[in-house]
């Protein structure tokens, strides 16, 4: 489960932050284990904690860390625009989490809202604002 959590969190906030998030996830899960009623739901429950932590994560060294991907060789991936991926990686955790959940994982806004315990309208606003921001940057860079 740890590898999967690291992969999920890496996509949502970046691999640098994912390690800390997963560590914090385990601590919270252990502390709140008694609130879990169905043991079969453990993985989903823990994942949800991790996704919530990604969403509310306050990146350490924020600006520098967000700029770092631009200085590092991009990972190979097929299709799409490499610049746009860089822009996604530089987003603040909250915007990146919602954007990757929606456009990457394909979750609808009401599903994101349930995952993050926010309103669907809020999820929609964050995604829309981020899309506008990325589009403006994308046009400038294009």
């Amino acid at each position: 489960m740890r590898g999967r959590l690291l992969a999920i969190c890496g996509g949502l906030v970046g691999s640098d932050e994912a390690e800390d998030i997963v560590q914090e996830t385990y601590l919270r899960a252990r502390h709140n284990l008694r609130t879990l009623r169905e043991s079969a739901a453990l993985e989903g429950w823990v994942t949800r904690i991790a996704v919530n932590l990604c969403y509310s994560h306050h990146a350490r060294g924020g600006t520098l860390r967000r700029l770092l991907p631009a200085l590092l060789p991009a990972q190979a991936y097929q299709g799409g625009d490499l610049g746009l991926r860089d822009m996604l990686e530089r987003l603040p955790p909250r915007e990146r989490t919602v954007t990757v959940l929606h456009y990457g994982h394909g979750y609808a806004f009401d599903e994101i809202a349930r995952l993050l315990s926010i309103s669907p309208e809020n999820a929609r606003k964050i995604a829309s604002r981020t899309r506008r921001k990325l589009a403006a940057e994308w046009r400038r860079s294009g």
Partner: peptide, 22 residues
């Protein structure tokens, strides 16, 4: 670009789980 950042799917039970202890 967003899909390229996804290397593992969320388990389906993540949506069904109760409020996260986050």
């Amino acid at each position: 670009a967003a899909q390229s950042l996804v290397t593992a799917p969320l388990p389906v039970t993540a949506l069904e789980a109760g409020p996260a202890a986050g």
